[in-house]
Design a protein around this nucleic acid. Structure first.
Lengths: 197, 197
DNA sequence: CCCACTCTTGACCGGCCAGTCAAACCTAGA
DNA sequence: TCTAGGTTTGACTGGCCGGTCAAGAGTGGG
């Protein structure tokens, strides 16, 4: 029952925060949905901010799983990115079905909010975003080796571009409640890398 | 004193919401900063949501001014976009100096929040984002006429890409507290339009 | 069986928050 | 000058919110 409770609180809180923001969800909401009392929540999390940080980490775990799944294979590097975009869009669609609204990027939105909570928050968010970009950067680097991407392209800068585009599309997808917008990222990324389709 | 009060409330609220979110600012904060009592605020705005909508409109006015300033001239269309990016980055820097943190896009962030407030909210946000994109779309269209952009490019889709990239860069700029990130948009947009620099 | 320790309960707090209201205050026009 | 309507005041409310606390329940090791 021990880890289980913590787990349930975290899972429920994550669900409630999706499609909303941390500020819009109260600890009481979380406790009610998890069937737990406030004391338990504060037994496992020192503050609401700490809970937010834990949710962020959990979302990063999910994103990393998605990345690993898309990037693990012997598929050409640019296709890995495509597969990730497909997976990301699928996730947005699933969440839309589950929560009734299209969420933004589970990482990006919360990262901004956590980054607003002082310097450690920003450092935390920055670390995760860097980690995400590194997947893109190594793929781009490998694509350069294969000649799929011009060698003049800076891998790190290109990774930033790619992440920015995906974040922006996720924001527009949320504002327009349309997860399919995300799919256009595949062609757009080719352009950002000056790669032929 | 009549319009003046409404004006002051709006201006102060806008300042408070920059770099934060509407949810993080209370009506009491706004009243205190504006030197006004709650009754006055609710005399001019029917609810906090309505105040949020008014702030969003105000931010759109500012953005439109920036767009008009960059787009009005006889400068080539792609350079107009560059000038807008410069203006946008300058604005982020000014806000950072004023509020101590880099804000995200004044329109994008608030638009997402307002879009979360039911269907009219989403329609409102969608209208402004569409308006913004139309500036890019006409510039792209004109650039195609001049041969600066391949005629195969779809103007509306390209405008969405450009807006998404800027929104994403603004998000990263906020998360990393670095407005200069925005400047890379100029080169990136060239790539998204398959245009030569 | 009991101790110690972790976990859970449920009531509680001080404060904040969105929104209300009636009364007072202007001010412009008749 | 009187009046009518827009504007401002200031106190108020009912509820929620993050967080605390002391006491009890459960449990594994000795």
């Amino acid at each position: 029952m021990a880890r289980d409770t913590r787990e349930r609180i975290l899972a429920v809180a994550r669900d409630l925060v999706h499609g909303a923001s941390l500020a819009e969800v109260s600890t009481e909401d979380v406790c009610r949905a998890a069937g737990v009392h406030k004391g338990s929540l504060y037994h496992y999390f020192s503050s609401k901010e700490a809970l937010g940080g834990a949710i962020l980490d959990r979302n990063w775990d999910m994103m990393r799983a998605l990345l690993e799944e898309a990037f693990a294979d012997d598929v050409p590097p640019l296709e890995r990115i495509d597969r990730f975009v497909d997976g990301f869009a699928r996730m947005l669609t699933l969440m839309r079905d589950k929560f009734g609204v299209t969420p933004g990027c589970p990482l990006g939105g919360l990262a901004v909010e956590v980054a607003g909570h002082g310097d450690e928050g920003r450092a935390h968010a920055g670390r995760l975003l860097k980690g995400w970009m590194s997947y893109f950067a190594t793929a781009v680097s490998e694509a350069k080796g294969r000649g799929d991407v011009p060698s003049s392209v800076d891998s790190a800068a290109a990774a930033t571009r790619v992440l920015a585009l995906m974040q922006g599309l996720a924001l527009l997808a949320r504002a327009q409640d349309d997860p399919a917008l995300m799919l256009s990222a595949k062609a757009d990324i080719r352009l950002l890398l000056r790669a032929s389709p």
